[in-house]
């Protein structure tokens, strides 16, 4: 399975990188940009047996995110799973 995990700073959590980028864009003539948030994008290949229910794979990826890939105190995450 082709798994793509998107991690972003939680709403309300300060994102110093996002702020710096937001301040830089007007200098290049890109006006009207707000709410810049810098996160992470992680690609994973997950081997699952053919008869695995989709819900089980989702549950497993969700657990990976909660335990290691994201820190739920400061980050939100979403992910997609595709047959590779």
């Amino acid at each position: 399975m082709d798994v793509r995990v998107y991690i972003t700073p939680k709403k309300g959590i300060l994102d110093p990188q996002g702020v710096a980028i937001e301040r830089s864009l007007p200098a290049l003539g890109f006006d009207g940009v707000t709410d810049v948030r810098v996160g992470k994008f992680i690609e994973l290949q997950v081997a699952v047996p053919n008869d695995t229910p989709a819900g089980d794979t989702r549950g497993e990826v969700d657990e990976m995110c909660r335990k290691l890939l994201a820190n739920p105190i400061i980050e939100d995450y979403t992910f997609t799973i595709d047959d590779a």
Binding site: P9, I13, L14, P16, Q17, I74
Partner: peptide
Amino acid sequence: GALIRNIGL
């Protein structure tokens, strides 16, 4: 809590 990037980067 958590420790994130310094505000001054």
